[in-house]
Design a protein around this nucleic acid. Structure first.
Lengths: 130, 130
DNA sequence: ATAAGGCTTCCAGTCACTGGAAGGTCAAGG
DNA sequence: CCTTGACCTTCCAGTGACTGGAAGCCTTAT
């Protein structure tokens, strides 16, 4: 099938699918007219990548996961290692955002938000000496 | 003062400070030899931006906040609006990451992580029909 | 005179796309 | 047969916010 149909079936924009070919993530065949030709297997790979990206895996993680997906001799430990690493990155990010949120919420809650200039948010950003 | 000293006092890398000039965020003077010259006011601005970036504000938000910082006729409502908007972006991001975390943790917890190939993580990524 | 360290500009790379221009291909309708 | 429109191709540029590196100028100390 052509790229448009592969896009429909995988849920990915055609632009993105071309990009995945460029970085050798999912490489389709070509038909006589130069059009990309996606086999059902190619589409499965695209769907796989779409789901993995949706879970926040980097494209390089997707590449590793794809090769594990295609290797029926894989050790599930290898998959788990990638996912566990990603999980702790997510946890770190959540913790970071929660800390930002706490600080910012505190500042916002103490700002009157009226037409007067005094503002604890600006004061905080300006630093302790100003 | 030169860029190196401004970097020390603001906690920003010299590279970043040059970048801020390029995008007209904090524009220093120049001395006769072509070196950038940072006044104490410039350094305050750099510190301000450093703190705002640390709270996750975009550079464009920083530009807006800086101009409010410099405007002693500002309405605190304008500051609060930017901060509130940012706060809800943070909240959205946290919610998104928590959802990812939940899904991924569930998968990781159900993966044996041994040398056998069966893996619920791969199964999930492969989709329901495989 | 030279060496070290700081400064300059400019170019390229990061990540994962996304938009757009210019042009080739194909099937259907008049 | 011609045109229209949808689809496909490649290539180039831009996103955000830097970061690294090369080549070369300036200043200060020895």
């Amino acid at each position: 099938m052509n790229i448009g149909e592969a896009a429909k079936q995988s849920g990915l924009p055609a632009k993105t699918i071309r990009y995945y070919e460029e970085i050798s993530l999912v490489v389709p065949g070509r038909s006589g007219n130069g059009y990309r030709t996606y086999s059902p297997t190619d589409v499965h790979k695209l769907q796989f990548v779409q789901r993995a990206r949706g879970l926040g895996f980097s494209v390089e993680d997707c590449r590793a996961l794809l090769s594990l997906y295609e290797d029926d001799q894989r050790a599930s430990a290898d998959v788990k290692a990638i996912a566990t690493e990603h999980l702790s990155e997510i946890e770190a990010k959540i913790a970071e955002l929660k800390a930002l949120h706490k600080t910012l919420k505190h500042l916002v809650d103490h700002c009157h938000g009226d037409d007067r200039p005094h503002c604890p948010i600006i004061d905080d950003l300006a630093g302790p000496d100003h």
